[in-house]
């Protein structure tokens, strides 16, 4: 191994270091959330916290680093970290029927963050109106389901009807609950992010 001199070391800036650490921890938290599911009264499928994680990534880390966190999450899962639902991993999950939802996370996190913060910069969330927050999360949800259902339809060679029923309608009540939870979290100032 060769000796390294000071001039060869290319240090990462302080702010970037914090953002990288947050993006990586957020991605790992998404993985931890994959193991948590709640029974939800009106939904036939158990509710996981992952979509809530996507919302909060866009809101608290901002559109750019929120999307970066989601990319890390997907890449780590593809390379073998047990971060997909129930602890599965590998490219097989991304190319499977539910892969579209996963692949849409970076886009959704970006959409949520960009609308809520009104641009690419991370601003204080207390200044953002509820309308902005709801609009951002609604756009994010639309992105997740449009890409998810489209992928399910293409992946399983099914009819559009079947794809929409199995891929979207059964999840709708739970999504509304998650949006309400996200707004409650943002408004209560419970997360010490800034």
């Amino acid at each position: 191994m060769s000796n390294t001199t000071t001039s060869e070391v290319d240090l990462v800036g302080d702010e970037t270091t914090l953002n990288i650490a947050r993006a990586a921890l957020f991605a790992a938290l998404m993985g931890a959330f994959a193991y948590v599911s709640f029974p939800f009264p009106v939904s036939p499928v158990p509710v996981t916290l992952q979509v809530l994680g996507v919302f909060l990534a866009g809101l608290f880390v901002g559109p750019v680093w929120g999307a970066a966190a989601m990319v890390l999450y997907l890449l780590a899962g593809a390379l073998g970290a047990p971060v997909f639902s129930g602890g599965s991993a590998g490219i097989g999950v991304l190319l499977g029927p539910t892969g579209g939802y996963l692949l849409s996370y970076p886009i959704a996190a970006f959409a949520v963050g960009a609308v809520a913060h009104g641009g690419f910069e991370l601003r204080s969330l207390s200044e953002a109106s509820v309308v902005r927050l709801v609009a951002g999360m609604a756009l994010g949800t639309v992105a997740i389901y449009a890409i998810g259902v489209g992928f399910l339809w293409w992946n399983t060679d099914t009819t559009v009807r079947t794809a929409i029923v199995t891929g979207a309608l059964v999840f709708v009540p739970a999504e509304a609950a998650k949006m309400a939870a996200a707004i409650g979290i943002v408004r209560s100032d419970a997360i010490r992010a800034e």
């Binding site: 790992a28 970066a68 890390l72 890449l75």
Partner: peptide
């Protein structure tokens, strides 16, 4: 991407 994945 490389270091982020390692941190995850």
């Amino acid at each position: 991407l490389g270091m982020g994945v390692a941190f995850v």
